[in-house]
């Protein structure tokens, strides 16, 4: 299993261009532009990315956006709140499916 999830892959992400330089170029340009200051600040975008990284459970993204949040001026409390938002949505998403279960149960049951 040692081929999975190598920390050094994050720094080597750019090597993904090997199989398709054109697509990689498009991806990284779009990715970079996405995180520029806009209607949302870079700091806010990093907090969103940190939250999504947790719901996606991507260790590379968690690594990258923990640093990204710190370097854009967020602190542990703000970052923890962002992760709780992700966890709340993840938990809520599971639980709200319970309505399907409920309706099915009510239909089948007496």
């Amino acid at each position: 299993m040692s081929e999975y999830y190598k920390p050094e892959h994050l720094a080597r992400f750019g090597e993904i261009k090997a199989g398709s330089p054109d697509l990689a170029k498009k991806f990284f340009e779009w990715y970079g532009a996405t995180f520029e200051d806009g209607a949302l600040t870079k700091r806010e975008k990093c907090l969103i990315a940190l939250a999504v990284a947790h719901s996606e459970q991507c260790p590379y993204c968690i690594d990258a956006y923990t640093t990204g949040c710190l370097e854009n001026g967020s602190d542990l409390e703000e970052m923890t709140e962002a992760v709780h938002v992700a966890a709340a949505i993840k938990g809520g998403a599971a639980l709200v499916h319970g309505l399907q279960m409920l309706e099915k149960t009510q239909k089948r049951g007496m």
């Binding site: 200051d37 600040t41 870079k42 700091r43 640093t67 710190l70 370097e71 854009n72 001026g73």
Partner: peptide
């Protein structure tokens, strides 16, 4: 004057100033 509390770079000062 802000400097990071750890092993990471300083934030963008213009954006950070407003916050």
């Amino acid at each position: 004057m802000t400097n990071p509390a750890g092993a990471f770079l300083a934030p963008d000062q213009a954006a950070t100033e407003q916050q």
